[in-house]
Every structure is written in C-alpha cells, then in structure tokens.
Amino acid sequence: MALSEKILKILDDNCKMTPKQIASMLGSDEDTVAKTIADLEDKGILLGYNAMINWDKTDSDKVTALIDLRVTPQRGEGFDKVAERIYKYPQVRSVYLTSGGYDLMVIIEGSDMKSIALFVAETLSTMEHVISTTTHFVLKKYKDHGVVFENDEVDDRQVITL
C-alpha cells in the first residue's frame, strides 16, 4: 500500500493525528507525511476534516432526514444537473446517485421537522424533472462513519495479565 493511502486510512479514522504521530506509526518522517498530506489536499483527494458529533447530547434540536427522489434524467446530462441544483442548497448535507427504486438520495439537516418538510414540499418536489419524493426522518443515530453513538462496550480487561 502506498504511503498516501496509509495516511488516508489513519486520518479517516482520526483526523486529529499529527504528521509527527503518523510518521512514527508508519516508520516515515514528519516532513514527508506533512508534504504528502498537503499534496492530497491540493489534488482534491483530502477534502476536509469533519468532527463526529452526537447532537442528541447537546441542547440542539437539529433534525436530519433522508429523502429518496425519483428523477427524469436529462438528455446529455443524466442526473448531474438536477443533483447540482439540489446540492447547492446549504441545508443539503449529502447527495448520492443510487441504484434501485430511486435515483437520488438526499440528506438534509434542519433546525426542526417543519423546516425540512417545507423544503421538500416547496423546493424539492416542485423542482423540474423531480417525479416523486419519499422523506425519512432520522429518529436515532446508532452508528455513523464507523462510530457507534452509544457504545456500552467497555475495556473490562484485567490491569495486568502475563
């Protein structure tokens, strides 16, 4: 595996790792790792560093919904144009083109259910080429990006075993 790929795997798991730590873990040196990371950023491979937050434990009432869309593909552009029109809205967190019964999956975050419902009713479903929408509100997040949200597995190993 190339060094850049190993670095990506480590950052994917924990983006707070410093180039120094990563260098020790991979038997490389700090400069090389820092340069590789800068290069990955320049190439648009490493696009950002997001925090995993369990909003349920805060005072925020933030709501998330997954919306399945059926869309008529456009000549010469397929689904790309519609997808672009959708992802330009700031409340849209993710847009995926999917196989199966629907074409696009849109993930929306809003301050409350009503604002999401209105966005779907007024903006998404009235959009040209959108045939239908199905909205699923997220009631509870169990696991996201490999992280279990309410993990009750504890380290119950003895302090010392030989």
Binding site: E153, D155, R157, Q158, V159, I160, T161, L162
Partner: peptide
C-alpha cells in the same frame, strides 16, 4: 507488584497480554 496494581483503579495500564479488539 500485582497487589499494588490491583488497588490502583485509575492507573493507565500497558500491562495486559491480550488484544484490545473485541
């Protein structure tokens, strides 16, 4: 030494001979 260790509840241990993975 074991006796001292077992009384100290908040110690960070690098003492186990088994994987941390479940």
């Amino acid at each position: 030494f074991f006796d001292i260790v077992s009384e100290m509840k908040d110690a960070i241990s690098l003492g186990v001979g088994e994987p941390d993975f479940v």
